[in-house]
Design a protein around this nucleic acid. Structure first.
Length: 577
RNA sequence: GCGCCGGUAGCUCAGCUGGAUAGAGCAUCAGGCUUCGAACCUGAGGGUCGGGGGUUCGAAUCCCUCCCGGCGCGCCA
């Protein structure tokens, strides 16, 4: 539809250029869906773009173009010049009537496309190390990544959701030490560190208290779940683990239990990963060593001060970075390079890393290194998101996994449920902070969440369906739906909004910005709810059989788009609430 | 100091490749349930789009500069 009109404008522009003896390339101009109904269905700015080049007033050019477009009188109702030189085009309403048939025919695939052409895309997200429960920040990333994956799938991509975690480094060692510390404290063989020392990283750290040693690590994990893990081990093994190394059963038990909790949380959120990759497997497969060797062969690595460095300055970055520490242990960077290289070896066409703002510094180094290894590094995309900031009585609360000052996904989830949680998290664009006011998180406030507004609009279409069945009124299907009777302006507006849906999905997918969907759905529901409310101007079920059928068709169309849109956000679309 | 991200209504935020009178939600105020679902709807007030320059027919959007906030700048991950 838009294409046909665009073509019409292109021809008109071509004719105009010829007449003026301008042999140049036709200019880029826009044909946009008008923002306001006063401006018709589409607006074209070609005259404004051409004015200077042709040295003619924009409105005069616009008049010529408008006349040309009016020629297509079988589907163009009128074309007017407005403002500084826009051409506004109204289409005959009949143009929208075919839409419902297409919507009902496509059903749950309406809005989907095949532009991805089966390209293999990996989306890596969450990737939290199993050292504690998922925080709101992880929750945001989880929902963001999952929605990106969903929109990519809807546009014909072959998507792999992947979770990567480091089980080799210091973090996991400290985790084991933390659990063992609490274990020994519970047995009375160690003294807990004073709370003041835990709270303040600069405070003095006593070696012994009342004759008992303080074994809990200075930078240990302070959450209650650590004590609970220790207690579980103590109940099962008594004091039989006193001489076990912290890096053994303590670490392993903690990792397994925490990971099981993380997976349970993700499941509740409706997030399912296809692949979990851990750092250790990269070592086991020799990929770390191989990567280092290959980087060395490329001449981008050197030894200095007992460590192995990446010559990233020569790759255009601001400093060199350590790949292997003086201790012989790789930094985080080297496994990350090996991992991204492995992604390409696995045949992904596009690799998307969803990461928090605190990790972006690392990204250019990984890309530069991987490029040196011959990978198509420009196919790695970074989707960066800011943190969730917590406010309590007007003040910001710092979140820290280690110090256990955070709100977990589980806590909020049990309060508001997965639907509201997901909507809340995907509402805003990723680059902005997401402010979470702990004082406002009461039940009454969540009741007026926009997520319910969308679900309510959806449920109301079922309310009408139930009523129609009661009255033995037949529902239209793709073959029988006939929207010709829809003539009210608000009905046309709804049809036009439905018509936008595929474009919105395409844009959300291409830009990796699922928040566009949530705003679009709010707009659609914002047309539909008032329409249903106004039973004075119009009712769906009436004595007029054709009109009733058409409006039922409209209801089914709205329902389809709401359901499909909600599905892309991973939010349920209930039949009643 | 350098880099990345943000600054739009009282609050939380949209604003697609520059377009016409800058939009939602919440909050506030005034109204609306005998009829398809009031978890809803109608209306009102509320803005120097952080400040200042520039490009353009046209700037919240692009360029420069300054101010404010977040994050990062480790042989931590």
């Amino acid at each position: 539809m838009r294409e046909a009109l665009l073509e019409r404008f292109r021809c008109a522009v071509g004719v105009l250029l010829d007449e003026c003896g301008d042999p140049g390339e036709p200019p880029d101009f826009a044909l946009e869906v008008s923002r306001s109904p006063d401006h018709g269905d589409f607006a074209c700015n070609a005259a404004l773009v051409l004015a200077k080049r042709l040295r003619q007033p924009a409105r005069a050019i616009a008049e010529r173009l408008a006349a040309e477009v009016r020629g297509a009188s079988d589907w163009v109702e009128r074309a007017e010049v407005a403002g500084p030189g826009f051409v506004n085009v109204w289409l005959r309403d009949a143009r929208w009537h075919d839409l419902l048939r297409r919507v009902l025919e496509a059903g749950r695939r309406f809005g989907h496309s095949k532009v991805g052409d089966g390209r293999r895309v990996q989306v890596e997200f969450v990737s939290a190390n199993p050292t504690g429960p998922l925080t709101l920040g992880h929750g945001r990333q989880g929902v963001l990544g999952d929605c990106i994956a969903r929109t990519l799938e809807a546009t014909g991509h072959d998507v792999t959701r992947e979770y990567y975690f480091n089980d080799g480094g210091r973090q996991m060692r400290v985790l084991g030490e933390s659990v063992k510390g609490r274990y020994l404290e519970q047995l009375g063989r160690a003294a807990p560190p004073p709370p003041g020392a835990l709270a303040d990283p600069d405070a003095a750290w006593p070696e012994r208290i009342d004759g008992r040693p303080v074994v809990f690590p200075r930078d240990g994990y302070q959450g209650d779940y650590i004590s609970e893990l220790a207690e579980t081990l103590r109940k099962r093994h008594g004091d039989g683990l006193v001489d076990e190394p912290a890096d053994g059963i303590f670490r392993k038990a903690a990792e397994e239990a925490i990971f099981a909790d993380i997976r349970a949380t993700l499941e509740q959120l409706g997030i399912e990963f296809d692949v979990y990759t851990n750092e250790m497997s990269l070592y086991d497969e020799g990929r770390i060593e191989q990567t280092l060797e290959d980087l060395r062969a490329r001449g981008v690595v050197y030894d200095w001060d007992g460590a192995v460095w990446l010559r990233s300055t020569e790759l255009g970055l601001e400093r060199d970075r350590v790949l292997v520490k003086g201790t012989g242990e790789p930094t985080y960077l080297l496994p990350d390079v090996a991992y991204h290289r492995q992604k390409f070896e696995r045949g992904f066409d596009v690799v998307i890393d969803v990461q928090g703002a605190d990790h972006i510094e690392q990204f250019p180094f990984v890309v530069a290194a991987v490029r040196q290894l011959g990978c198509p590094a420009d196919r790695i995309e970074l989707v960066m998101h800011q943190f969730v900031t917590l406010t309590r009585s007007g003040e910001q609360v710092k979140q820290s996994t280690r110090r256990a000052t955070y709100v977990t996904v589980d806590e909020l989830l049990s309060q508001v449920g997965a639907d509201v949680f997901r909507f809340f998290m995907v509402q805003r664009k990723a680059e902005g902070h997401l402010d979470f006011d702990l004082d406002l998180a009461t039940e009454t406030d969540w009741k007026q969440n926009p997520a319910f507004y969308l679900q309510y609009a959806h449920a109301r279409t079922y309310g009408i369906e139930r009523k129609a069945r009661e009255q033995a009124v037949a529902l239209p299907d793709a073959a029988s739906v006939d929207a010709a009777a829809l003539a009210l302006q608000e009905e046309i507006e709804i049809l036009k909004k439905i018509n936008e849906f595929p474009e919105v999905v395409a844009r959300a997918s291409a830009s990796r910005e699922p928040h566009h969907l949530s705003y679009y759905l709010r707009e659609l529901a914002g047309l539909w709810n008032p329409y249903l409310q106004d039973g004075v101007r119009h009712r769906v079920l009436s004595d007029d059989a054709a009109l009733t059928s058409a409006r039922l068709g409209l209801a089914l169309g709205v329902r389809t788009v709401l359901a499909n849109g909600l599905a892309l956000l991973g939010i349920s679309a209930p039949e009643r609430m």
